[in-house]
């Protein structure tokens, strides 16, 4: 479904992604962790073309990245992206946030889009917040709207870029719960997060990145109990002690 082959990216002289090769199968959930600045966000931003790269190849759902604007747009319709800062449209209600792309990009009728939108907002537990504007919602509620907004396009792949990092601790679980149920439904997911409980519960593989490279990737069982690399061990001891 997602196929990186020797992908490289530089910001000027800084080598932010070095020789990334990785293959994510359909229905697989891959959790990406690593210290800040390790390139994990940049990596998943490459998957839907938010970041260009200079060398190597990336094929997502049969489309090679780096092609025409039109093919990138077609691809983005199939790939949902959830941001750390939610990025909800502040001038639209929760329901409008969710229906905007289906109406204008998928060309769904307004009625059909609203029906889908209501169902999704119900699914993420926000049936009573449909007419609220983002600034009237808590962080956790906003992030759930953002997830519903991505799902409204009925994507084949969902990408999460630190979806709970900007949330107050008591709101993290409501967002993780939605992501867990999504994973259980068989969605292909790449998730950048430090929520190791989530990784343990739903990840098929956990990946550790440092300085732009994949250091270690393994099934969660192996990854957490017998990490091979020193840097992985060091990182895990820091994030797991609480």
């Amino acid at each position: 479904m997602i196929e990186f082959s020797s992908l490289n990216k530089w910001f000027g002289a800084l080598h932010v992604l070095s020789d990334i090769s990785l293959s994510v199968a359909k229905g697989e959930v891959v959790v990406v962790c690593g210290p800040s600045g390790s390139g994990k966000s940049t990596l998943i931003r490459c998957v839907n073309g938010l970041e260009p790269f200079q060398k190597g190849k990336l094929i997502v759902d049969g489309t090679e990245l780096g092609g025409s604007e039109a093919s990138l747009r077609d691809l983005r319709m199939e790939v949902g992206f959830v941001f750390q800062q939610f990025n909800l449209y502040p001038h639209k209600t929760a329901l409008e946030n969710v229906t905007l792309a289906p109406v204008h990009v998928r060309k769904l009728s307004k009625a059909a889009a609203e029906e889908r939108g209501r169902a999704l907002l119900e699914k993420v537990g926000l049936a009573d917040k449909m007419e609220n504007y983002p600034h009237q919602l808590s962080g956790g509620q906003q992030q759930r709207v953002a997830i519903a907004r991505s799902l409204a396009m009925q994507p084949k792949i969902m990408l999460f870029d630190e979806p709970t990092s900007a949330l107050d601790p008591e709101m993290i679980n409501e967002v993780l719960d939605v992501m867990v149920s999504l994973a259980n439904e068989g969605m292909t997911m790449m998730v950048v997060t430090h929520e190791m409980g989530f990784a343990r519960k739903v990840a098929d593989r956990v990946m550790f990145m440092d300085r732009g490279a994949i250091v270690e990737i393994a099934a969660p069982e192996t990854f957490f109990t017998t990490p091979k690399n020193d840097r992985t061990r060091d990182f895990l001891s820091k994030v797991l002690q609480h």
Binding site: E69, R76, Q85, N87, Y89, P90, H104, R106, M153
Partner: peptide
């Protein structure tokens, strides 16, 4: 208007013109 707004819109498959019209300009 924060860059995240047009990134979110682009991620949903909006064209540049649509991003401008529905997301960026109103704000």
């Amino acid at each position: 208007v924060p860059l995240g707004q047009s990134e979110a819109a682009a991620s949903s498959g909006f064209t540049r013109v649509q991003q401008m019209r529905h997301i960026v300009l109103p704000q």
